[in-house]
Nucleic acid binder design. Sequence first.
DNA 1: ACCTGAACACCGTTCAAGT
DNA 2: ACCTGAACACCGTTCAAGT
Lengths: 201, 201
Amino acid sequence: MPRRQQPKPYHHGNLRRALLDATVELAADVGAAGVTLREAARLAGVSQTAPYRHFNDKQEMLAAAAEEGMVLLLEALQAGIRGAKGDPDAELVAISVAYVRFALDHTRYFRLMFGHGSPHKSVTPGLQQAGRAVFQLLLGIVARSLKKPPADPAARQAMFRIWALAHGIAVLALEKQILFDIGTDALLAATRQAVAAQLPL
Amino acid sequence: MPRRQQPKPYHHGNLRRALLDATVELAADVGAAGVTLREAARLAGVSQTAPYRHFNDKQEMLAAAAEEGMVLLLEALQAGIRGAKGDPDAELVAISVAYVRFALDHTRYFRLMFGHGSPHKSVTPGLQQAGRAVFQLLLGIVARSLKKPPADPAARQAMFRIWALAHGIAVLALEKQILFDIGTDALLAATRQAVAAQLPL
DNA sequence: ACCTGAACACCGTTCAAGT
DNA sequence: ACCTGAACACCGTTCAAGT
């Protein structure tokens, strides 16, 4: 989506939006590490210090963009489990596949959220909260699969195993640590298979 | 290990060594992203441009340090499987646990190798080769477990699942994406359990 | 309220020069 | 061979100032 080339009034109109778009754009290759406050300002057609009107510093700008990505991830995961109505084990496979698929489909956001230079979740309450929502969604399914309360240590451990599996696949795929080629379909199939092998928890 | 405060002759003696030590030191917190050529030179007690005598650029310095870490990892993995003499499945559990343990014990190296700003394996032939050796070690075990040749796609897929699992656990643990606390022993136990659940491949 | 421009202390890298 | 010092084009961030 290319941004309009307006006659450029003194007030930008929606600078915050433009800066967040620029942030995601710049994160495409290297992740948050490739994002520069000055370059984002340039893309938004604004002076180098204008971003400070909207964010206290670079970390907050990154965190705001990562938060948007986290909300997108949450929605993708929720949509993913919709197919497996009710059955927790089917939901676990579906949510894991959705996680890896999100990493492949929204690479720029995923890199921004988890790649090089990504902001710590503690930077912003909003980012932390969005991360917690994803966490809770997964934990809830695991708990139902185990028929234990979410607070149970066993549930947390099991959740961690599933998450680590999906996250590990996504990260290795994105960072090209995979020394052999593997297509999208094969990757999703591998995810399905790997998670299924963990069941029943 | 604190470096000696010598009378500082014109020629450093072992600048390359000192720079690599400084690199690992600086990577402790944030990973390679926290490494600065100038700061490494300062730690080595040398001018800002002296590192260019030993490395073509910053990436090569990072890659050289990462390569040393990769060799350490390889040795740790080899030592890890020594206990499970011969049995491939026991070796798979052992190598995965050794992988996660390395991440916890040699955090600075692991962050440097896989964390924020880590050098691409393609930067240096040495780093690429060291990475490949780790890859081959794991692939060999998986192939023996499956009783298939290492070149078989099924072996590669299975290897990828095991690696992703161990890597995912290590990464989540280090990046503190874990929103709950979990001790070292529990983490290694979770690794053991998660890998064992994948067996037989 | 919102944005600019100069300034400061940092980078990585280059290049001529010193021993 | 090995190292220095000045220089260049970049950063993030601050601060006084403009509209």
